[in-house]
Nucleic acid binder design. Structure first.
Lengths: 212, 212
DNA sequence: TAGATTGTTAATCGATTAACAATC
DNA sequence: TAGATTGTTAATCGATTAACAATC
């Protein structure tokens, strides 16, 4: 198995999404130039990306079979096997994530939400029960929840993460706008709106008006 | 002005966040090794990153002044000037973004939300009025809203973006899980949960158990 | 066949890391 | 002074792009 860069991994869901649109339209095959043009990547990059995950070769003049490619990508991305997750912090953002309708399609199953607010505990959000934090350890163990989605305020993020890791979580999907430290071997993926906005702002201010 | 890579830009908010924690604690100076250790970057990278934005030199043995560095970063990131934005799609995710309390600190001012649902139009979410889509053009013009936050379903994202661009928007912050095409000179920044999860899943399945 | 598209190998580009002299 | 930390210059590393022969 090759090594996949972060950028490369991030591209696959975009391929998958567009392939599904094509499939919907009744298309059978798709070529690298077509994908490249649609998604704004280079042809070479598209070919490399697809070669890296597919053991089926593309066919000159035709390209690749869309249906097969979708299956390959869904398998590669782990959409065809269920992974259990818990979500901590059922505020506005956490609530939105509990209601996010696409996680199931991605193989991610949020088994419960957690919050310290007694007002929220016992209620359901997005069809998921909100439990008190002292139920976290047993829930993680019971469901073998390897992924913990962190949507708490910055100041409590590290504490929550430490707690979750003690209970056996292996990966942190961190939506709190702060860095968290974890031991070797634990995976952290940040969704940081400040970082995203920083990229956007910089491009807006320094690149788009750069005359070319 | 140098060129800043996406990765580099994404790091600055993490520096800023930690610097504010240090300031809160009453610290005066901070060194690159300290920042590096805390944030999991290399010392050299920290130095390069800070040198790139600061015209003040760091001082051997002491490091950099925290207060000054915060000011520098906030200015660089555009937190000290207001940029107007509109948000389209006041569903769960859009609603969470309308309620997100940190955008104002980042200089981002969401002036209104938009939705096609008559149930939502006229109401307020996160203190922002929800308007019908036919008010989009005039709102963008009136407030000089350069940034459009897109939180609509995939299938309508491109259409909404085209509409927004026609009204004078310059940047799209896309939370819909699909690629959108824009003309030269328009900035698109994607926050794609599927991409983020793809990175997390891959690391979880193929790296953390790789024995080292 | 001709030509579009493929996969592979080499070249380029850019970012990160390493090495080290300068300095408070 | 000694040593921690700095900034700079060079080396490495990895990802993207370019070139091109192979093939349906």
């Amino acid at each position: 198995m090759e090594r996949f860069s972060k950028n490369q991994l991030e591209r696959y869901p975009f391929y998958l999404k567009f392939l599904k649109v094509l499939e919907e339209k009744g298309e059978i095959n798709v070529s690298s130039p077509t994908l490249a043009k649609e998604l704004g990547y280079s042809e070479e990059q598209v070919r490399k990306d697809l070669q890296a995950v597919s053991d089926e070769a593309g066919r000159p003049k035709k390209g690749r079979n869309i249906h097969q490619l979708i299956e390959t990508l869904e398998t590669f991305l782990g959409y065809r096997q269920k992974t259990a997750a818990v979500l901590i912090g059922a505020g506005h953002l956490g609530g939105a994530l509990l209601n996010y309708p696409y996680f199931e399609d991605m193989g991610l199953s949020i088994v419960a939400g957690f919050d310290t607010d007694p007002q929220k505990v016992g209620k359901q959000i997005g069809g998921k029960e909100i439990l008190p934090l002292d139920k976290l350890a047993e829930t993680i163990k019971e469901y073998k929840a390897t992924i913990v989605i962190v949507a708490v305020p910055s100041f409590s993020a590290q504490e929550i993460v430490d707690l979750a890791l003690k209970s056996g979580a292996l990966a942190i999907w961190n939506f709190a706008p702060t860095h968290i430290s974890v031991p070797e071997g634990i995976v952290v993926e940040n969704v940081n709106l400040a970082s995203s906005l920083a990229v956007l702002s910089h491009r807006l201010n320094f690149e788009s008006s750069k005359g070319e």
